[in-house]
Design a protein around this nucleic acid. Sequence first.
DNA 1: TAGGTAATAT
DNA 2: TATATTACCT
Length: 522
Amino acid sequence: MVCCQEIREDHEFRLWKDFPKGLRVLLLCNDADSSSQTQTKLEQMEYIVSWYDNFDEGQKAISEKSELFHVAILEVTTDNCQHSFKFLEKARDLPVIVISSDSSLSTMMKCIALGAAEFLQKPLSEDKLRNIWQHVIHKAFNSRGECNNTLSTLNPIKEMVVSLLHLNQEEKAERSEHEIHEKLTSPSTPQLESKLRLSSNNIEESEERNNKSADKNCNDLVVAPSKNDNEQVKELTKHEEEVNSIEISKSDACSSAKEGHGNVRLTGSKMKKNGSSSQATKDNKKKSKVDWTPDLHKRFVKAVEQLGIDQAIPSKILDLMKVEGLTRHNIASHLQKYRMHRRHILPKKEESWKTPQDTSARSYMQRPILAPYPPLQQYYPVPPFAPWYHHHQSYYYRPFQPWHVPAVEETWTWKSYPQVHADTWGCPVFPPYAHNHNVPSPMPPPTCNKYGTEDGSNYFSVDEEVIDKVVREAMAEPWAPLPLGLTPPSTESVLSELHRLGIHTVPVLPTAPLSNHTPRDY
DNA sequence: TAGGTAATAT
DNA sequence: TATATTACCT
């Protein structure tokens, strides 16, 4: 007699959220009353019971339909001992729990020796019966190929368990991250804020690595069934330790962020040179890195400006900066980077004026022309297609880069915006527009110093009034040399602006041909 | 010894 | 990949 209930599909195991409910149990017992009682108990636990009262049928079921069962319960009596032992020999693919009223040690030993997972004496304890699923898990992880069908039968269980454990790890990691976010509250200074952000980034990277590692571990578990559960548990434990270590590193990040604001902060190699160099062990002879905070960099730049870029040498900069803990070598290194950056960025700025990408871009990319025009902003309205237009209308929009190239050091930009980024040295990095040539590249969006201005609105550090004054002076005496920082408008931009104003003819100067255009074009 | 720069490390 | 440090040359 067989009472098979609905059988789960294998893929459902991955989503077996109410495990062990639905565990499929083969019940082999030739005593109708006893089996009925056992079956009732099992079904109360929402296990799915298939009852066989005939040993031949039972053996046939496990050999032909082993995939239908997770566990077998065999009732051994004095009458069916031989059949039972035979069944045990045949049913090595499944965890078999023996139940019996026979309490003789020899029977118990023989059953266990033949592969029974457990020997339960009757009357059955409900808890014992409920926990038979443990043998399923154990079998799933502990069978090492000695049973041909085990893998196909219990692998879904194994996968489910692995997924479950992995999920738990992820939950734990999320929980620790949340706790850390709560710990890192309201830094009192921009530096701290940045440090925390950076630390947090490091942690995120670390966590990403950990997660990847966990994924790898998990994959290994699934892909390599030959590993025994000890190895797998080790891997899972390792992951857990890694997750725990994140907590520690986060705490470190928090404390280190709190401690460093005044003098130069040195980082790296678990060594803090700041004020505790005597504690540095001989193993840790390696020099620490200088954390070039915006404040430190500002001081550096100030010193360089004071000396002049040509006269700025490390020793002099070091004297001017007056920062404890900083060495000449540190300065030299930073100066090298600073110079390289200037070399890299300044020609680009020049180039950006000389080679407008397309005509539509010119309409607001062009340099302003020296003519008595109304305030420049009126002529260069915010293009509605500017990428930050919709999302960041609170920013002041500067329609073109005005008359000076902003000092590199003034725009050390770190804070990122959804569509606008900048490198560490403040050079705006724009999103790619190459895909749509009809959309002109926008002007640099408003930016800020490394930590942002208070209102996020000051793109250029030079006061607008100063710019206007310089422009007015230049326009008043167009024959005079342009003040430092101002460059004359391009011929193209002058012509296009004149054209826009309705002036279509301009006299041709023999000494200054108008690029490729003839006056007729205008 | 200091400055500059390339190579290397993080 | 970016940045800092180190090594090496002048």
